[in-house]
Amino acid sequence: MQLSRPPVRLGVRLLVLLTFAILPGLTAAFDQPFLLDLALRMMILATAAVSLNLILGYGGMISFGHAAYIGIGAYAVGIPAYYGEYSGYVQLPLAIGAGALFALITGFICLRTKGVYFIMITLAFAQMAYFAFVSIEEYGGDDGLVINLRSKFTGVIDMESTHEFYYVVLVFLVGALYLVSRIVNARFGMVIQGAKDNEPRMQSLGFDTFRYRLACYVIAGAMAAAAGWLMGNYNYFFSPEMMSWTHSGELIFMVVLGGAGSLFGPVLGAIVLIILEEVLSGATVYWPLILGAILISVVLFARGGLEGALAMLERRK
């Protein structure tokens, strides 16, 4: 029954990933390095959105502070670099470890609340991180600092080469997607989804839902910090602004636009949002207004986001 339907979603996934895979060749041939830059930003933010989707889409934990992890990941490149430590073998584990630790500490408190309170307290912690880094003059305060060199994996990958860095980013995106697809279908993921659906029932079945949620929150935080590590390398720059709540909002927008709780939705959301921003901001200074109207329409009329719309297309044909 399923097989006779046109696999629209699968087709879109393959098309998107294939396009990302061959893009460096195309942009070189047509001399459009700007497109490569755009694709890099899409993939990095998509990786972060995929991690947010793990807690928001599958776990029902609406974090309004996910950009904090991007900032933490970027500072994990910048601060060691400031002291002359450029090794990626130091910076990447530092980013992941710091992201996981921040998620563990804040999650321990946030996850005792539900609904709007959870949203507000995740926002509050992200703002605390933001202002903490604003106040550290040593690392540039609110101006941030420039990073001279990207993370070094001497003899393995040359991150300074745009193409090599590009494929590192692509591997992270695909890796994040694969990781989330395994997690949500494993026993752990069943618990996370059950707790989103009906937490008291999970507890009466015998699950200590708080711990499972906390573990999920930590995994998502570590993944987002890895995306932040990419972002710091991509920008050659870090600043507290990366942690600002507007970026957290953007990540939520990507997940909702693409389809919360669908594996590939956040990737589509990131791509479409970034294209919209590019196109609209070129056309009018009032572009955030139009963007807002689009988001409201998605929430009101297309609950499943882009993935939901594609699924509907599959059913109709």
């Binding site: 279908n185 618990v191 999970m202």
Partner: peptide, 17 residues
């Protein structure tokens, strides 16, 4: 899920349930 609740811990992240 009801079976899983009695089948040891659920910190299993890889095998498809």
């Amino acid at each position: 899920l009801a079976v899983q609740a009695h089948a040891g811990h659920s910190y299993r992240f890889w095998r498809r349930a």
